[in-house]
Design a protein around this nucleic acid. Structure first.
Lengths: 196, 196
DNA sequence: TGTACATCAGTGAACGCGCGTTCACTGATGTAC
DNA sequence: TGTACATCAGTGAACGCGCGTTCACTGATGTAC
């Protein structure tokens, strides 16, 4: 039976929210429309009242994942001891983030999938740029190079968490997180008072 | 009709070789058994004379991809101007590597897939460790911390190439590669004569 | 070296399953008067 | 405010397709004598 506009919007939200989490958890594939609709308390058939295709949901869910990530990062940074770069590293490079991709950074969770899903790349690009600029803002040193250095730091962060997840429960997994922290801090220190 | 043992081995090689390339190119999914058998000049039905299951091929192909990568890296390093860390960065962080995942580093191409494919993780772990130690050997500074720093550098490298691929043709893609080069060089310099 | 038989690499059709998408239908919502 | 009708959110069955896996079959290879 028909539902009110407000209820439709709520349903839409629930689908996108579920997708943003499940996609980060298991990738764009390995999550079925059926499963997402069930998690949103609906059934298969209604999906196309909300999205033109599964790919359309992928795009929207990716944008939502970046938004989630921003919000969550904000919360954690506010709670972290101190602030700035070190707080960011603490919040990103830890086991909780590694073990809970569904609530984590979409860059770490979805680079591989995005590389093979052209329709999602525009959303990825825009949001990656914003993330990188935010990270760049935490760095000292020359203002002009901050965007570039922000990008490099974000690549290193995502690479470390991605590798840590691929390594599973190994001890190397923890080393990857800790060593990346040191790598970034050393580079940041060197970047601050340029030639030493 | 039956083939000789030598021919079977050649067939096996062709399948694994094709798989090692296609998997890096498009991920573990998005490559069908049919396609791989065809690329090896065979037909679907014979697959199970070579592998117990598709997953078994995934594992074997991942190991092969690491081997390929090692060989290729060796060749390119030998041809590169100078050697050591800078040659490694030149060889890894460039557009050719970004645009040809099939011949490239399995860490950059497959971290996401491996994280979601437990049976492949043992192979990944072993080979990642070997790669990281090799990279660590290119770094100066304290011997004890070289493994850890090698791991961090490899994470940063893979993260940069992974992100560059996800960004597609954007200018940010080139920035990610160049900025990661700088990040690693700065960190390596700082790491050499520890506190400055 | 030659012969007879078992083995088995490779073929191509078929099976079964999951999944994205479509469709006829229901009945509450939204709208026009 | 009330009534009549069109709209459309959500349902559940069905369709079509791709893919991993199985299977009966073929004929060259490997082996035992």
């Amino acid at each position: 039976m028909r539902r009110s506009r407000a209820e439709k919007e709520k349903s839409h939200e629930r689908i996108v929210k579920a997708a943003a989490q499940r996609f980060r958890e298991r990738g764009f594939d390995h999550v079925s429309v059926d499963e997402l609709m069930a998690e949103a308390g609906l059934t298969r058939g209604g999906f196309y009242k909300h999205f033109a295709s599964r790919d359309a949901l992928v795009t929207e869910a990716l944008a939502r994942a970046f938004e989630d990530g921003r919000v969550r990062l904000g919360q954690l940074m506010a709670a972290a001891a101190g602030s700035g770069l070190e707080a960011c590293l603490d919040v990103y490079l830890n086991e909780t983030h590694r073990d809970h991709p569904a609530q984590g950074c979409p860059v770490a969770a979805l680079i591989g999938d995005v590389a093979r899903t052209p329709p999602a790349q525009a959303v990825f690009r825009e949001n990656f740029r914003a993330y990188a600029d935010w990270v760049g803002g935490l760095l000292g040193g020359a203002r002009k190079s901050r965007r570039a250095r922000g990008i490099a730091v974000l690549c290193a962060l995502a690479g470390a968490v991605g590798v840590a997840r691929a390594l599973g429960d190994d001890e190397l997994s923890d080393v990857a997180l800790a060593a990346t922290r040191e790598l970034i801090l050393e580079a940041a220190k060197a970047g601050k008072h340029s030639p030493c």
